[in-house]
């Protein structure tokens, strides 16, 4: 029984089939990779999953519930959270506020409660700060809580996006190129971090990444997209030796660092 189940997902923009017949089963607690050359349709898949685009056909089910037709915030509430390939933080706000907005979804106090500072509201806000500081601790951002998000270095911004997504208490986390722009040391730490949150938060992760070393190292199962079509799926070893995958990457030896 898989937690996230995607069947025959397709979308076309005008005449272009950006994603076509995409299938994926993701069981609770798994860490799967989604790879493919540039323009293969990976991010489009994420946009379909999170309700940014409406699919032309196909179904998306999370824990038995169909997500098709839900608006993005409803999908987040259902337990699907994401990070963005081209970082989309709330730049003028502090690091702490960024994470707190992730918590908003699970709050229950009302506007009136906020305006009157009802005891329930005050307790909830306090608990929220505590929880956010905990998340920042995990992601190594605790000492930057009061800085403006846009002033953070690149690697920190990527980790802040993860913290913010975790704050929504997701069942499934979609990571869109979390290692992009990171240096070797940061990438190494990121590996440990992804493994840690997978374990500690009882998460399930779907990962888009161009860094083959990272993907092959941490993913148990990999799906390869090219031109919107799944061309291969299986264990890292299987995918690496699949001639179709090698061909899609124009003969570049699979497993090389930075195939782009």
């Amino acid at each position: 029984m898989s937690l996230l189940s995607i069947t025959d997902l397709s979308i076309s923009f005008g005449g272009l089939k950006a994603v076509s017949g995409f299938n994926l089963e993701l069981a609770q607690g798994r860490l799967q990779g989604l790879i493919g050359p540039n323009g293969a349709g990976k991010t489009t898949c994420f946009n379909l999953l999170t309700g940014v685009y409406a699919p032309t056909s196909g179904t998306i089910r999370l824990a038995g519930r169909t997500l098709n037709g839900l608006r993005p915030h409803q999908i987040a509430a259902a337990g699907l959270a994401r990070t963005f390939q081209n970082i989309r933080l709330f730049p003028e706000l502090t690091v702490l506020d960024n994470v707190r907005i992730g918590c908003h979804l699970r709050t229950r106090s009302t506007m009136a409660g906020a305006l009157l500072r009802s005891p329930f509201h005050v307790r909830e806000e306090r608990a929220m700060v505590e929880r956010c500081r905990g998340l920042l601790e995990v992601l190594n951002l605790a000492d930057r809580a009061d800085e403006q998000a846009r002033n953070l270095p690149y690697g920190d911004q990527r980790r802040l996006e993860i913290a913010r997504a975790l704050a929504t208490q997701p069942k499934v986390l979609l990571l869109d190129e979390p290692a992009a722009g990171m240096n070797t040391q940061e990438k190494k730490e990121l590996r440990g971090l992804i493994r840690q949150i997978l374990r500690d938060f009882g998460l399930t992760i779907l990962l888009i990444e161009h860094d083959m070393g990272l993907v092959m190292d941490i993913c148990e199962f990999i799906t390869v997209l090219d031109h919107g079509v799944t061309i291969s799926a299986g264990t890292p070893a299987h995918v690496q030796n699949d001639p179709k995958v090698v061909e899609a990457y124009l003969g570049a030896p699979a497993g090389a660092e930075e195939v782009a």
Binding site: V52, R71, F84, L89, F90, I101, H104, T107, S109, L115
Partner: peptide, 29 residues
């Protein structure tokens, strides 16, 4: 002021900062 420094107010400000990201974080924009 109370609105600005509370969860509903931050939800509003997140829309101005980045509407797409706000939605993805579960804010009913």
């Amino acid at each position: 002021l109370r609105l600005k420094y509370s969860s509903p107010g931050r939800a509003m400000i997140s829309i101005r900062e980045d509407e797409v990201a706000a939605q993805a974080m579960g804010v009913n924009v």
